[in-house]
């Protein structure tokens, strides 16, 4: 499992994560990620053939709510949290050209 995550890979990952870094920061994060994943190598000592994965712990069938719309009474409170509003609409940068 030992793999050196390249600077180019970190750049791609940062882009996917919607984070931007300076060259120096990229180098630091690359070092950090390589350091952490070098510890993951330890897991290769285990025989995981046939072991089923546990994605979450469940204690039986989770209860399901009816698929019904519920009116949120505090609409104004929610809108107050938006960084920029115009009336009852949230303002975002333009995404379509004229």
């Amino acid at each position: 499992m030992e793999r050196k995550v390249s600077l180019a890979e970190i750049k791609t990952i940062a882009k996917l994560s919607k984070l931007s870094f300076s060259e120096q920061e990229l180098a630091n994060f690359s070092e950090d990620v390589n350091s952490v994943i070098s510890h993951f190598e330890k897991l290769n000592r285990l025989d995981l053939q046939g072991v089923s994965p546990t994605s979450h712990i469940s204690w039986g069938q989770p209860p399901l709510n009816p698929d019904e719309a519920v009116v949120w009474e505090n609409r104004d409170w929610v809108l107050e949290q938006a960084p920029e509003v115009c009336g009852r609409l949230i303002v975002v940068p333009k995404i379509v050209e004229k």
Binding site: E9, A14, S17, L19, F29, D32
Partner: peptide
């Protein structure tokens, strides 16, 4: 990009990068 980059601290960014990887 700029909201997330300026909004999150170093450890959070480290774990986002690690998790995304």
């Amino acid at each position: 990009l700029s909201s997330r980059t300026r909004g999150f601290g170093e450890e959070v960014k480290r774990r986002i990068i690690l998790g995304t990887y």
